[in-house]
Design a protein around this nucleic acid. Structure first.
Length: 420
DNA sequence: TCTGGGGTCCTAGGACCC
DNA sequence: TCTGGGGTCCTAGGACCC
């Protein structure tokens, strides 16, 4: 059996832990730049605030219902996430951290446990240890655990736990489960399936396998099997290194000047470099992209990217910055109002498998030593305490975060403020 | 005025090899 | 009229996830 633990309205719940006056109130958390709604309390869901709506479109509702609005505080959410994961670790021999707020638990060998009782114990413990409310779904496959989890969450009578233990109750559950809620069915597939009169998970499992293969490829066949209790997707307890790393951000305000965009790019490169070094990887290719605001139909539009293949794979921020800026200079056009820029590194390889170049003049040992020193200093004294000059200090490109809560768990000054 | 950020997997088609 | 057969690797685009 496999368990899936999912934190309820995670970002909202994090805000509530440190600000209990928010409990029972209508709360939403916004994406970067205070752009869109990305987390909603149950109260917000109940009055029809949709996931992903731009904040400015719900201005009236915010006013009318006195909605509490927060900028996203990923430092806080990341730290709370770690606490939840640490607490969950004791409940299963292997766990897979699937996202910031979701964990799969391996219940292999738990056949003689009362898994419903066990699930309730998990819910109780996590709530007590972290203050974050969670739901637990338990079933034979990951996809069914996802189904069980949704059922656990939907009906309060389940007390946050639901177990799909046998064919009979799988049948019963899938017959009531909307096809669009299946893990792996997105907007396009949902549309397609409904057009073919497939409305529930059960309907889907009744289709011939060949039909599923033809229209939803092998991905669909996996879902089809999983929904019938045949495991196809393994639990991954070791996280494989990333194959691509992306770092980008919309600017708080549109930018026209090259200098500020270069600073933004240098900062994105610095983050990518850190990520690469953290997973002991190097990259052979670097993409720089920038574009204007696509929502502003009244302004001229421009979007471009450029891929730079490095002569020798690297994870040195100094070297990566050099190439990124070279690329940026090639795609930057004067006269546009830019809204977003970023870096994507792909062609990632392990750092101990870097192919050397006979004509390479870079002193790579020196680069490595510098990066090690830089990472060490910054991990101790704070991000970017030591930085590449190109990263600058103006931060004209930075985010809008007008409703940011304090970093309650990680910043001393914030903690002191709370005490006062 | 105002619209997020970061990933994965699969497939088809093209370029290339013998 | 008619031009082989069997592979691999890479990429872009589309689907999905949180």
């Amino acid at each position: 059996m496999i368990g899936l633990v999912d934190c309820n309205n995670f970002y909202v719940s994090c805000e509530r832990v440190f600000n209990p006056s928010l409990i029972g109130k209508t709360v939403v958390v916004l994406s970067n730049n205070d752009g869109c709604v990305i987390a909603r309390s149950n109260e917000a869901k109940a009055i029809g605030i949709k996931m992903g709506v731009p904040a400015f479109e719900i201005k009236k509702e915010i006013e009318k219902y006195q909605i509490k609005v927060f900028s996203s505080n990923y430092t806080l959410y990341g730290d709370m996430s770690q606490r939840v994961m640490a607490s969950l670790n004791q409940f299963a021999p292997e766990i897979e951290i699937y996202s910031i707020d979701e964990v799969f638990l391996d219940f292999k060998g738990f056949e003689y446990f009362d898994l419903y009782e066990y699930g309730k114990q998990i819910v109780k413990t996590i709530t007590k240890n972290t203050g974050i409310p969670i739901s637990t779904g338990i079933a034979q496959t990951k996809t069914l655990a996802k189904v069980a989890n949704k059922i656990a969450k939907k009906n309060p009578a389940n007390k946050g736990v639901f177990v799909l233990s046998n064919g009979q109750n799988i049948l019963q559950a899938t017959k009531q489960f909307p096809v669009e809620d299946i893990w792996g069915v997105g907007r396009r597939y949902a549309e397609f399936l409904k057009k073919n009169n497939i409305n529930t998970a059960y309907d889907f499992t009744r289709m011939p396998k060949t039909w599923v293969q033809k229209h939803l490829t092998v991905v669909g066949v996996r879902m089809w099997n999983e929904l019938q209790g045949n495991p196809q997707i393994e639990l991954k307890s070791v996280i494989p290194p990333k194959k691509s790393i992306c770092n980008s951000q919309s600017f708080g305000n549109m930018l026209t000047e090259y200098t500020f965009i270069e600073e933004a790019i240098a900062n994105h490169v610095a983050r990518c470099g850190e990520e690469l070094r953290k997973q002991n990887s190097c990259t052979k290719a670097l993409m720089v992209f920038l574009h204007t605001n696509q929502h502003r139909k009244d302004l001229p539009q421009y979007a471009k990217n450029i891929v730079i293949n490095l002569p020798v794979a690297s994870n040195s921020t100094i070297e990566l910055t050099h190439y990124a800026i070279k690329g940026l200079k090639q795609i930057f056009e004067k006269g546009y109002y830019y809204k977003k820029a970023g870096i994507i590194v792909s062609k990632i390889i392990p750092e101990n498998a870097v192919q050397q170049d006979l004509f390479d003049h870079t002193d790579r040992n020196k680069q490595t030593a510098i990066m090690q020193a830089l990472d060490k200093i910054n991990s101790q004294y704070g991000r970017d305490k030591v930085r590449i000059a190109a990263q600058g200090f103006d931060r004209k490109w930075k985010l809008r975060q007008e409703q940011l809560s304090p970093c309650y768990t990680t910043r001393l000054s914030d903690i002191l403020t709370i005490r006062v």
